[in-house]
């Protein structure tokens, strides 16, 4: 046990000294704060229209209005405020959808890898079938069936991306099953549930956290795609995908207004990718050895 805790302390140390992990985590904390304090940070109500000042440019341009630091859209709504409120939807979907996919995928992966046999066969074939769909196509089909809406998007992401967790974690469970302490636990007469929860799950947790981080970035992208095509939030809600769809129609007059929401998506996805990538490098035994 002492050896294990030393190893996990070392793993924590590697995580915290990794520039990727730190940069990703800092960005995510900032985004979370922005989402949390949106009403205090946003200079305007994101829905407020000012039809006398539409398509205002951002602050560095000549005709800018200091009241609208990043300018306004076609309906005279404050782009900065809409960006800030958009953070809420993006993070809400990222956290809820990715956690849901993690829960479903991990449970199926552990059960599949632990019991093997028919259960494993069935779950693996289900993954094969899911993998035959391009994810976007499956998401569109699900949203046609379920109806549009941000919670439906979350449900769709869970129903699609559980396979991402299931595939990766199942093979890790299979590796864990070959280690001595699993048969030992069986000989001691531990229940299946206890072995899965107390012996196998801790061994695959680092991997779960890594995939979770990457999945959050993917969820942000999927929500943006779905609100871009009008299958997620109502068309007047401030979501980044909606903003991009709106701004696309005025790209000739106001090219900047499409850049801001794209930048917001980029930063958010970058944050989750950096965190996931950093964690993977810090926690993956093989990579650790190679880097010394």
């Amino acid at each position: 046990m002492i050896v294990l805790s030393e190893r996990s302390r070392a793993a924590w140390g590697r995580c915290l000294s990794s520039p990727r992990v730190l940069a990703g985590a800092c960005l995510i904390v900032i985004l979370l704060l922005v989402a949390l304090f949106a009403p205090w940070l946003a200079p305007h109500d994101p829905q407020d229209q000012d039809l006398l000042s539409t398509l205002l440019p951002p602050f560095w341009m000549a005709e800018a209005d200091p009241a609208y630091p990043l300018g306004t859209d076609t309906l005279g709504r404050c782009i900065l405020s809409r960006l800030i409120y958009g953070t809420r939807i993006a993070l809400y979907v990222a956290i809820v959808a990715a956690s849901g996919a993690m829960l479903v995928g991990t449970v199926l992966a552990v059960v599949s890898g632990y019991f093997g046999g028919t259960i494993d066969w069935l779950i693996s074939r289900a993954v094969d079938i899911w993998m035959a769909f391009p994810p976007v196509v499956l998401a569109l089909i699900l949203l046609v069936g379920l109806g549009a809406g941000v919670n439906k998007v979350i449900l769709a992401i869970v129903l699609i991306d559980w396979t991402r967790f299931c595939r990766v974690i199942r093979s890790e469970v299979l590796v864990t099953m070959t280690l001595d302490y699993i048969p030992a636990a069986k000989i001691l007469g531990f229940s299946h549930a206890r072995i899965m929860l107390k012996e196998i799950l801790p061994a695959v947790t680092p991997l779960i956290i890594t995939v979770l981080s990457i999945e959050m970035g993917i969820a942000v992208i999927v929500e943006a795609i779905m609100s871009f095509v009008g299958m997620s939030v109502e068309s007047n809600v401030a979501a980044w995908g909606v903003m991009i769809a709106d701004a696309r129609t005025t790209m000739h007059q106001a090219p900047w207004s499409v850049v801001f929401p794209i930048g917001a998506i980029f930063l958010t996805v970058l944050a989750f990718n950096l965190l996931g990538d950093g964690l993977r490098r810090a926690l993956d035994g093989r990579l650790v050895q190679r880097n010394g």
Binding site: A224, I225, I244, M251, P255, I262, F266, L270, N273
Partner: peptide, 23 residues
């Protein structure tokens, strides 16, 4: 590669239109 991976294809599509089609 980090930048390319953080922007999905459909946003690249819009950025390409913006910079190589409009601007």
């Amino acid at each position: 590669t980090t930048v390319m991976m953080a922007i999905p294809e459909f946003l690249w599509a819009i950025l390409l239109i913006l910079f190589l089609g409009v601007v």
